[in-house]
Every structure is written in C-alpha cells, then in structure tokens.
C-alpha cells in the first residue's frame, strides 16, 4: 500500500507540474495580435504587475462583481494557501535541501492559523457549493464537473480535518514517509484509513488539474485583457503572423485610387 501511494503521489505531482508547464508554454507561445487590455489599464509594466497582483491576491474584479462569491472564494483560496504552507512541514527536512524554507513553514501564522484554516477552507467551499445549488443563474451554468470539483476539494478538507481534530495519525511517521519518497528510501505510511482517503483524493486532484478548469491558475496570468500595457499609440504592437500580412496590405485595389 505504501509503495502504491508513493507511486501515486509522485505520478500525480509529475502529471500536474508537466501539465501546467505545458499549458503555460502553450499560452506563452500563442501570439496576442492586438492590444486588448480592458481599460482603464496601466500605462506601464509596473502598473500591470500591480493590476495582476490585485487580481491574484485580492480578487479585485470579483470583489467588484459579487460580494458573496468573493467572500467564499477568497476565504477558500487564502485558507488553501495557509493549509498548503502548513503542509510543507511534511516534506521539508530542516537540515535538508529545502531547509531554508523552514522559517516560513514554522511561522506561528502558518502553523496555528493553518490548522484552523482547514475549517475556513471548507466553509468557503460549502458557500461556493451552496451558490451553485441555490442561485438559479449559477445553477444554470454549472456542469457536473463543477460540483464534483468542489466536492473533491471538500472531501480532501474533511479527511484532513478529521486527522487534525478527531482521529489523529502518527504525523512523525507521515513525515518519514514523505521524506522517504524524496530521498528514494521508502518508509511505511502511518496506520489508518483516513490518510489513505486524504492522499488518494489529493493525487486525484493532481491528475485532474491540468485537464480541467483549474487551468485558471496559469490562465489568470495570461489574459491579455489584464496583462497588457495600455500604450498602443506610443508603441507599435505587432506579432509574427501579422507581420506577414503587412507585406501585402498595400495591394488592395481600392487603395490605388
């Protein structure tokens, strides 16, 4: 069982990282032939960085749009970030290669808030799930996968919270297992079925991520509507395929008077 899980986790991580990297590469390589920032837009690159940061960190547009969706969505994502940071303690050996991250992971805010962030994360997800069920407009646009995705992450949360607050597992053993994977020296998983559910669902999430709407993770950085500088009059924007059209653009018969 431990070997199977080790394999699953490694495979899921590889699929997720490679999948995301390939998608990001595809986005980067697809040209954006026209300047289409939604205006008013920043006139400088620095301004664009601030605009994107506001979107990624604060969900600024969503805040403007709908306070409830923002509240639940932001609560979920911030909680998830804290929970993620807290989990790093299972894969970082303070003496090892990633040890330099240890001060971050051992921060009070990460370790104590991170524990309770699991709860706010699930509350956020429940809120989003409720919106999907009870707001007619959102229900209309929801496909089965939209519900399942929320359920998947919710169950990851539930199983995790169970281990944190109700039936504890041997986390020292857990860490040995994770470090074992990283050091190619496999150690057994701790006893208990909850951890199997938890890790299995996490692996599933990793596999799904690059072929699902979770592509909003790279997508948010690549939207020309948000990441372009608003300077079309000052600087000519032209992509390769459009340059080819430039060579024949004067040949139209009506231009010869």
């Amino acid at each position: 069982m431990s070997t199977l899980y080790a394999f699953l986790l490694v495979a899921a991580t590889v699929v997720m990282l490679v999948g995301l990297a390939r998608k990001a590469k595809q986005y980067r390589k697809t040209p954006a032939p026209l300047k289409i920032p939604v205006t008013p837009a920043p006139k400088t690159t620095g301004g664009v960085v601030i605009r994107l940061a506001k979107e990624v960190v604060l969900f600024a547009s969503l805040f403007r749009s709908n306070k409830w969706t923002w509240l639940f969505g932001w609560m979920f994502h911030v909680s998830l970030a804290l929970v993620f940071l807290r989990h790093l303690r299972y894969v970082i050996d303070p003496e090892g290669m990633l040890g330099f991250l240890w001060p971050l992971v051992s921060l009070e805010v990460v370790q104590s808030f991170g524990k309770y962030a699991g709860i706010t994360m699930v509350i956020g997800l429940l809120g989003l799930f409720g919106r999907r069920l009870f707001v007619a407009r959102v229900r209309y646009i929801s496909a089965p996968s939209d519900y399942l995705m929320l359920l998947l992450i919710m169950f990851i949360g539930f199983s995790g919270l169970t281990m944190s607050f109700i039936s504890h597992i041997d986390i020292v053993q857990m860490k040995s297992f994770m470090l074992g994977i990283l050091n190619f020296d496999l150690v057994d998983l701790p006893e208990g079925s909850t951890i199997l559910i938890h890790l299995g669902l996490v692996a599933l999430l990793g596999f799904i991520l690059p072929v699902s709407k979770l592509l909003h993770i790279p997508g948010v950085f690549y939207a020309p509507t948000r990441n372009q500088v608003d300077n079309p009059r000052e600087k000519r924007h032209i992509v390769e395929w459009a340059k080819k059209l430039d060579e024949t653009r004067k040949d139209y018969p009506e231009l010869r008077g």
Binding site: Q26, T30, W241
Partner: peptide, 24 residues
C-alpha cells in the same frame, strides 16, 4: 484561431463558472 489569438485560447480554458458575469 486558438493558435493565433492568445486571448481566445486562454479564455476557453480558464472559466471556473463562478457566475460573477451572469448578471452583468
């Protein structure tokens, strides 16, 4: 068009169906 327009390409993938636009 997916290969020539980054916006179109990214927008096809990145919607999470949050519903923020539904009443706009």
């Amino acid at each position: 068009l997916l290969n020539r327009y980054r916006g179109f390409r990214v927008f096809m993938d990145s919607c999470v169906k949050c519903g923020a636009c539904t009443d706009k």
